[in-house]
């Protein structure tokens, strides 16, 4: 079936402002929006630039704004979107070209929350064990693929690019609530700053945007509650249970 796409194009080397271009391509209703973008790039205009890697909703490379909402182009079926399909880069980041955005600061914030296991004890001979219940505590936030859909759908982030953002908080949550981790004392000060978790206004755009179905707002509130609990009782145990 013929599908119309309206894509925001921008090449900072030659364009003074982004401009819209329309394309019509032939794809199946059960194809993904990514297939339509491929059709444009391969058959209409080879200069169209976008990121994609695995193309199966796992790597998180092809997050973009589709019909006003942040989505993974490789997970959204043509039959589920209205035409013309309006495709824009994620908001709040500088555009490198067309649908490719500069994620440097996004990953700086990701690194700032130390998204790795911090354990004081030397590693045991086998695994660091935990019960299924302990694992369940942070299971939801392990699903993050760092696509950036949540952070770039957040009005607080649009208003202030220094906000640490939902994605970094989700990553912090994944370790803060891990019974094996003891890095809370290093992560919490970053999250407690003015540009940390307190900039969340509970808008739920992040939860709506997450292609992995993570309850992002809930994770943020859990980190906020953890900080309040820690402020009331500074000697609280290191791994949040």
């Amino acid at each position: 079936m013929p599908v119309r796409l309206r894509i925001q194009r921008f090449n900072p080397e030659t364009d003074s402002a982004p401009q819209w271009r329309e394309y019509t391509v032939e794809v199946e209703p059960t194809d993904r929006v990514l297939d339509a973008l491929h059709a444009v790039k391969w058959h209409c205009d080879g200069s169209l630039a976008f990121r994609r890697s695995c193309a199966h909703g796992v790597c998180g490379s092809d997050a973009m704004m589709i019909n006003g909402k942040n989505r993974l182009a490789c997970k959204l079926l043509i039959k589920d979107v209205k035409q013309p399909i309006v495709v824009e880069p994620m908001r709040g980041f500088a555009v490198v070209k067309d649908l490719i955005v500069d994620q440097t600061k996004f990953f700086e914030k990701y690194r700032a929350v130390k998204p790795y296991l911090i354990a004081a004890e030397p590693p045991p001979k086998t695994e660091r064990l935990q019960s299924p219940k302990q694992q369940e505590r942070f299971e939801d936030t392990t699903k993050c693929i760092l696509c950036g859909a949540c952070t770039t759908s957040c009005p607080s982030f649009w208003a202030n690019g220094e906000y640490v953002g939902p994605a970094a908080i989700v990553q912090a949550h994944r370790f803060l609530f891990d019974s094996r981790d003891q890095g809370a004392a290093e992560r919490l000060p970053v999250l407690n700053e003015a540009n940390g978790v307190w900039r969340c206004r509970t808008i739920f755009n992040c939860t709506d945007a997450c292609p992995r179905g993570i309850n992002v707002t809930k994770a943020i509130v859990e980190v906020q509650n953890l900080l309040v609990a820690r402020a009331k009782d500074p000697r609280g145990s290191d791994a949040a249970q």
Partner: peptide
Amino acid sequence: APPALSSAYGRPKPIGGMDLWSWY
């Protein structure tokens, strides 16, 4: 005793402050 990891990053700041209590 296990090393205090936060010592490598300076004294950890106590948790609290205006933003936290204003949210609460």
